[in-house]
């Protein structure tokens, strides 16, 4: 297909090379190399403790790392607060536990960054926020507080909040794993829509149906390393390493 070709021509929006990260003495990420092209959808999976969260949290500098480089849109991540803030406004993150601000209404949760970080007027920000809430299907909840909403609704608010600053890259850290089963699909539906719109996404998730449907590449991590990466077809049907095969056997039988 032509889309594959155009993707090859696109530039790397994220370039990670020789990334090493320690928590104290614990070597959490080992020599990670990963390039992500603009508009690519990457799914990261792997057993618990393999470093998936750590990896994507390095991309928006929520975690500092000791060795290696990460370039986001050509800007290298360093300890420079100004630069980090700029990168964070391009790289949005959705958390496992939503992390909405409980003291603010839904719409105020959404307008916070546009108003304070991007200097938009309250009116503009609010209008855009309502549009986004409409898009994730909960415009009618705009004036409520987060804990008056169900888990699935809260996560959709969190996605809308991260879209408010028109990011180029979205990071998802197990966005559905804190949800009751009947709420998972409403969140995945929103993510599928986003994927179609060409935003660059890195999703840590164990929703293999989602991975199969939208991922351009799936990455398998174990023990702080990238063990295998492949397109969905080959990833699921022709696992090269035993570790991946074992992992797939475990999660697909459930």
């Amino acid at each position: 297909m032509s889309t594959d070709k155009s993707k090859n021509n696109k530039t790397n929006i994220i370039e990670i090379s020789k990334l090493n990260k320690w928590y104290g003495d614990f070597h959490a990420l080992k020599n990670i190399d990963l390039n992500v092209k603009e508009g690519e959808i990457i799914v990261v999976c792997g057993p618990s403790g393999s470093g998936k969260s750590t990896l994507i949290r390095c991309v928006n500098f929520l975690e500092k790392f000791q060795e290696g480089t990460i370039l986001v849109s050509g800007t290298e991540l360093t300890d420079d607060a100004q630069k980090i803030r700029k990168i964070r406004s391009e790289v949005a993150m959705v958390f496992q536990h939503f992390n909405l601000f409980p003291h603010l209404t839904i719409v105020d949760n959404l307008t916070l960054a546009p108003i304070w970080v991007h200097n938009e007027t309250k009116l503009e920000a609010r209008e855009k926020a309502l549009k986004l809430l409409d898009r994730v299907g909960i415009r009618d909840q705009a004036e409520k507080y987060p804990n008056q909403l169900s888990g699935g609704q809260q996560q959709r608010v969190a996605i809308a909040r991260s879209l408010c600053t028109s990011p180029k890259i979205m990071l998802f850290d197990e966005p559905t794993s804190a949800l009751d089963p009947e709420m998972i699909s409403e969140v995945l539906d929103v993510m599928v829509e986003l994927a179609k719109e060409g935003i660059t996404m890195i999703c840590v998730t164990h929703e293999m149906g989602f991975a199969r449907k939208v991922a351009n590449r799936i990455i398998f991590m174990d023990d702080g390393q990238i063990v295998e990466e492949n397109d969905p077809e080959n990833f699921f049907n022709h696992a090269e390493s035993d570790r991946l095969q074992l992992f797939l056997d475990q999660i697909l039988t459930h």
């Binding site: 607060a81 406004s89 992390n99 970080v117």
Partner: peptide
């Protein structure tokens, strides 16, 4: 919870914005 700090950081708030808008009110 730590998640509040992380969410505030992730949307690009500065140290003072984070504390004044998110952390201190709670």
């Amino acid at each position: 919870p730590r998640g509040q700090y992380e969410a505030a950081d992730a949307i690009g708030l500065s140290y003072f914005q984070k504390n004044i808008l998110i952390i201190l009110p709670q």
